[in-house]
Design a protein around this nucleic acid. Structure first.
Length: 764
DNA sequence: TCCCTCCTTGTTTTT
DNA sequence: CAAGGAGGGA
């Protein structure tokens, strides 16, 4: 960089400040002392963060290793590195830019011995955690049917989120949690993790805190090292992360936190909105800079979102504004039921596509994962490509975990969890009985499972069949380990998967998912090749392997509102705005007002994802867990300002008029007959209406028109004929019943009769 | 040891 | 309704 300067006196306006607005530039330039940047949705938060970092480095205030920047996701960390690197035009090796967890792990690896760990300690994922907890719970004779491991896992996780080791949980709280069983189990769990030489995700921070507390000289060293600290998404930090940051920022207090209290949507996993609300008290002399100029959404969308979020009490408050006047109002659509809603959304997507809007600029954002299903089915039917974002992440899938467990046991012979996972996968006749013997010996002789297994093979403890199978597995593992020393690791990986019979297991599997799983295994081997060694790969896999569902190609995105945070689209569909679904009933029951406010923030996040169009919808009745329920429009619908909203409903369904400000019972407001009825009988009207919405609805015009159009479309060339056996990614195997242009009616073996577009099926 | 059937239980999710 | 877990029977 050509802007030379003395530390502390950067040039008045270096080039990278160009194009920043007043407050953005202020946030970049205010390098000394605690700073909270309250960045509303779409106000250029990432740009400020990256420019600020570039500024600190370019003006010589600090060297790269003296700046600590933490994020929550690998994606955010990667983006930060790339953007700063681009601004500075230099490489980013050895920078301290990473997630809280990755940074914690890095610190722990450097001082593992102080904590009784080895530097190469393992990192457990959620699945491993649950297995361990289940074993320990059973050892304590806890009925894991009535008290499932997940319950204990979440209690323990919450304690870790708050920076509490077992000794620091107060007896009163311990006695309260899960009949007093959780606290002793927490102790067992931590002991077991040590024995396994492993950490779970929470430990990466918890142990770092212990390290700072018990070894002040280490904390001091880091404090000396990091002259500047930057934190992204501060509203999502938990207590442990807060304590960690405070420790590191002690002394210079050059800590810059960027966040938005209105987008705090993770309290249920320990995020403490109080951290951001308390910032000024926690860091005396702190400055707060608000970024309020929104560069994303049109004025109607912004006004609607702002008005909605203004219903929350616990917030710092911001006034977002935009210069982009005009645009469409927020659309609110009443529909008959879930199917109708999916149809309405589908037609709207089609219409936009016809007008030339790219599919990749459209998203359907739902409250809960299962809600994507109806939209998927509709989009498949009308032949619109889509992508479901979120779901099971790549490395969380069963086949990937199994494969990784094989790699782990080959690399680390004493990895008990990995051994347990693969010992009878694929089935090789090693059941509970054999496993119990192995465990017994391992515990008695204090051996890792694989060593215990080896001893057992040399004895007559096991039945011949089990002994042969186990001997073979151990020999295989030894051979693969040997092979690793001489052969390229992707080849070894392939050999492991083939020779263990794991690939064969899926090849023999006739279920619809098997093909996808084999694909994933191939992908895994490809990913593997990008690392220099198998251990190198394993180091990364637990912490930094996200599934890049690259938003490149032409597909509509389907995801939860949570998954949508940080993203933006031209058009955003927000279906399912009904009481009970959104706001979610269970959240309300458990969390009261605080939970309602979080649900409202979620609605705010949803609306502010939209650049040009936001389409909210709700259904009058919906199938919930197998039964039909009449539903009421979400209170959030009513909280949208009438001036920025345009609503519509199909004829026959009462138009929603949730905007008249009467506060007693949005039910009446929501579903009042359009012009005829007075507001005299709210309760009865709602009840009556509830009973009156017919399950059979008028034939939707769009469908008929569409069906006619398709028959007149030129017959596309495709190879499918009646009676043919075909395979569908989602529905599995089936037989073609009728062919109508590009539409095939297929009897699926598992999914029943469906009409699908030919391009979604393959000959079986 | 494995497979099938019955029963329960249904948010949000990164690392 | 649908999936996943547990327990019983072969």
């Amino acid at each position: 960089m050509d802007m030379s300067s003395h530390a502390g006196t950067p040039p008045a306006s270096p080039s990278y400040l160009c194009g920043l607005n007043e407050s953005q530039a202020d946030a970049v330039r205010t390098t000394e002392g605690p700073l909270l940047v309250l960045a509303g949705a779409g106000t250029g938060k990432t740009r400020v963060l990256t420019t600020r970092m570039a500024h600190i480095l370019a003006s010589g205030l600090a060297q790269p290793w003296q700046v600590l920047a933490v994020t929550f996701t690998n994606k955010a960390a990667r983006e930060m590195r790339e953007r700063v690197a681009a601004l500075l035009d230099r490489s980013v090796e050895s920078w301290w830019v990473g997630t809280f967890h990755a940074t914690g792990a890095r610190m722990l690896r450097g001082h593992a011995e102080l904590l009784g760990l080895k530097p190469a300690f393992g990192i457990l994922d959620t699945d491993d955690q649950l297995r361990v907890i289940k074993q320990l719970a059973e050892a304590r004779r806890i009925d894991t049917r009535k008290l499932p491991p997940r319950l204990f896992a979440s209690v323990i996780q919450r304690w870790k989120d708050r920076g509490l080791t077992p000794e620091r949980v107060t007896p009163a709280e311990g006695a309260d949690a899960v009949d007093g069983l959780a606290l002793p189990l927490y102790g067992d769990y931590q002991d077991r993790l040590r024995a396994l030489d492993a950490c779970d995700f929470g430990d990466l921070l918890l142990h770092a805190l212990a390290l700072f507390r018990d070894h002040p000289e280490v904390a001091e060293r880091y404090r000396q090292q990091f002259h500047y600290i930057l934190v992204d998404e501060y509203q999502d930090t938990n207590v442990a992360q807060y304590l960690w940051l405070r420790t590191l920022a002690q002394g210079h207090h050059n800590v810059c936190c960027v966040g938005d209290d209105d987008q705090s949507i993770y309290s249920w996993r320990g995020a403490e909105i109080g951290n951001i609300l308390r910032f000024e008290r926690d860091f005396p002399g702190a400055r707060i800079i608000r970024l309020e100029c929104n560069y994303r959404s049109t004025s109607h969308i912004l006004a609607a979102a702002s008005e909605l979020i203004a219903h929350n009490r616990g917030r710092l408050g911001k006034t977002l504004w935009t210069t982009a006047a005009g645009g469409d109002k927020v659309a609110v659509r009443a529909t008959w039921d879930g199917e109708d809603e999916a149809r309405v959304v589908g037609s709207e997507i089609e219409a936009l596509q016809v007008q030339g809007h790219p599919l990749r600029q459209m998203a359907v954002l739902v409250r809960a994962g299962f809600q994507t299903r109806e939209f998927e089915e509709r989009l498949i039917t009308i032949g619109i490509p889509y992508r479901v974002i979120g779901g099971a992440r790549f490395y969380e899938r069963q086949e990937i975990r199994d494969a990784v467990a094989y790699f782990r046991i080959v690399v680390r012979p004493d990895d008990d969890l990995a051994f347990e996972r693969i010992v009878n996968t694929p089935k090789r006749g090693l059941g509970l009985a054999s496993l119990r013997s192995i465990h017994q010996l391992a515990r008695g002789a204090n051996l890792p499972l694989s060593a215990a297994a080896a001893r057992l093979v040399a004895s007559d403890e096991l039945k011949t069949q089990a002994r042969t199978a186990l001997a073979r597995l151990l020999a295989d593992i030894a051979r693969w380990r040997d092979m690793l020393a001489r052969t390229a690791h992707p080849a070894v990986a392939r050999a492991i998967l083939d020779e263990s019979g794991y690939t064969g297991m899926w090849q023999a599997d006739r279920s619809p998912e098997a093909a996808g799983r084999l694909e994933n295994l191939k992908e895994l081997v490809v990913a593997l090749a990008e690392f220099e060694s198998l251990p190198g790969f394993l180091e990364h896999v637990s912490l930094v392997m996200d599934n890049d569902e690259a938003a490149g190609d032409e597909k509509v995105a389907l995801m939860t509102l949570h998954a949508a945070k940080g993203l933006e689209f031209d058009t955003v569909f927000l279906p399912g705005w009904e009481e009970g679904i959104f706001p979610n009933q269970r959240a309300l029951d458990e969390g009261g007002t605080a939970a309602l406010e979080e649900e409202r923030r979620l609605a705010y996040v949803g609306l502010t994802r939209a650049r040009r169009r936001a389409i909210v919808s709700y259904a009058a009745s919906r199938m919930v867990f197998g039964t039909w329920q009449n539903t009421l429009p979400s209170r959030f619908v009513k909280e949208l300002p009438a001036a920025n909203v345009e609503q519509s409903a199909p004829t026959g369904l009462f138009a929603a008029r949730p905007f008249r400000g009467a506060s007693d019972g949005f039910a009446r407001d929501g579903f009042q007959p359009d012009a005829s009825a007075s507001s005299a009988e709210p309760v009865r009207l709602a009840a009556e209406a509830g009973g009156r919405w017919p399950q059979r609805r008028p034939a939707p015009p769009t469908i008929d028109g569409r069906a006619e159009r398709t028959t007149t479309r030129p017959q596309p060339a495709h190879p499918f004929t009646v009676g043919q056996r075909v395979f569908h990614q989602k529905f599995g195997y089936g037989q073609v019943r009728t062919v109508d242009g590009d539409r095939l009616e297929i009897d699926f073996e598992k999914a029943g009769a469906k009409t699908v577009i030919h391009s979604f099926v393959a000959a079986a």
